[in-house]
Amino acid sequence: MERRTFLRAAVAGGTTIAFGFSVTREAIAYPAQTGPNPYGPLQAADANGIQLPANFTSRVIARSTQKVAGTGHTWHGAPDGGACFADGAGWIYVSNAELGSGAGGVSAVRFDGNANITAAYPILAGTRQNCSGGATPWNTWLSCEETDLGYVFETDPWGAKPAVRRDAMGRFKHEAAAADPDRRVVYLTEDEPDGNFYRFVPTTWGDLSTGTLQVLVDNRGALSWVDVPDPDGSPTRTRRQVAGAKVFNGGEGAYYRNGTCFFTTKGDNRVWAYDAVNNALAIAYDDNLTGNPPLTGVDNITGAPAGDLYVAEDGGNMEICIITPDDVVAPFLRVNGQSASELCGVAFNPAGNRLYFSSQRGASGSNSGGITYEVTGPFRG
Rank of each mutant, 00 (worst) to 15 (best):
G150C: 06
W272L: 03
L142C: 09
I323C: 01
G100E: 06
A135N: 04
A168P: 09
L213Q: 02
A86C: 07
P294R: 00
A135Q: 05
K266F: 04
G221K: 00
F56T: 03
P193R: 10
S339E: 15
N116G: 08
Y121L: 02
S95Y: 08
W138E: 08
T140Y: 01
R184T: 04
N96S: 09
Y255S: 07
V23P: 15
M169W: 11
N349G: 09
V298I: 05
P202A: 01
G159L: 14
I123T: 02
G77E: 07
N279L: 15
G150I: 05
A32Y: 01
D230Y: 12
D268E: 09
V94Y: 02
E2H: 14
L52H: 06
N288G: 14
G20F: 13
D232F: 13
Q214V: 04
F200C: 04
A306M: 05
G377S: 00
V164Q: 10
G195Y: 02
A304F: 05
G303S: 07
G297K: 03
P162W: 09
E192M: 10
V109S: 03
R63W: 03
T65D: 03
G105V: 01
Q360F: 06
G259R: 08
P157D: 01
P293Y: 02
D227W: 11
S368E: 11
A135P: 08
M169E: 11
A97W: 07
V247N: 09
V152F: 11
R380F: 09
L149C: 11
T212P: 07
N336S: 13
I17M: 12
L223R: 05
A254I: 07
